[in-house]
Design a binder for these strands. Sequence first.
DNA 1: TGTTTTCCTACAAGTTAAATAGGTTATTGT
DNA 2: ACAATAACCTATTTAACTTGTAGGAAAACA
Lengths: 147, 147
Amino acid sequence: MNMVISVKISTKGRYALRLMVDLAQRKPGENVALKEVAARQEISLKYLEQIITVLTKAGYVLSTRGSNGGYRLAHSPEYYTVGMILRLTEGSLAPVACLEGEENTCDRREQCATLFVWEKLQKAIDDVVDNITLADIIANSADNYVI
Amino acid sequence: MNMVISVKISTKGRYALRLMVDLAQRKPGENVALKEVAARQEISLKYLEQIITVLTKAGYVLSTRGSNGGYRLAHSPEYYTVGMILRLTEGSLAPVACLEGEENTCDRREQCATLFVWEKLQKAIDDVVDNITLADIIANSADNYVI
DNA sequence: TGTTTTCCTACAAGTTAAATAGGTTATTGT
DNA sequence: ACAATAACCTATTTAACTTGTAGGAAAACA
């Protein structure tokens, strides 16, 4: 049967991660036109533009306009965790709203028997995404290229 | 701004869990009218009816019609894991579609550098939800009742 | 000046979440 | 018998969100 819990990562987050990995695989400081990334990753250019806007505004990538322009990472691949990228593009990674912030704590919090389940879940999720960097992803994918 | 939660458990799954915990806190074999659960948990009765239908059809709860009727657990609280309940009510979606089953493996699978991230995430989530039972939840919430 | 590329804003089809609504059938107490 | 109760069944709704498309403006370079 092999059923799975519905923990959906949207295309926005997934594409953002693939985009960042793509940039990380280039020479440091080299400008990469989004058009190229779109072609390589088979993602719509216009959609990628929207996604990278967020990454640019957060200072994760640097941009250069005009011909020979493009994007490049602001830091080395070791710097970026999956969590940083997903939180930025997906929003909070909390499994339930009441874990998201002070403003979302519900009235039932004290009586809520299930709260500790969500807390455990959140810790497990954070533990994964905060301990994988772009460098890890690249290293791992390199292992898969069997000659 | 109210940004979207990406790794999110829907109300359906959350309510199902609260419903099951509520039933588990009753005397074994005692019929509990859904109306009571709805009042206690402050959830719409009509919405709960839809949710418990799934649990009933799966054989997780037993139902009795008519006055003095209601619902009761088919097994003891130790039997039910959070994973069982969430998978049933949330559906069978993986963090990403390509992990869902044979039929969804995408063309890019071999080149997909990010796949192992989603695999790790899935394992971490499964590890949490498959190792907490209704009995654990009840035991834990009992600890919180400070006199 | 023309080309390239980032940047900005709007819109839209499709899907899903989260209920609401209104009834039917079975069982039990009176 | 009959009213009350509670499960059961099916349809509809509303709003939000996803997943893009679309069209152009501004900047840089050759």
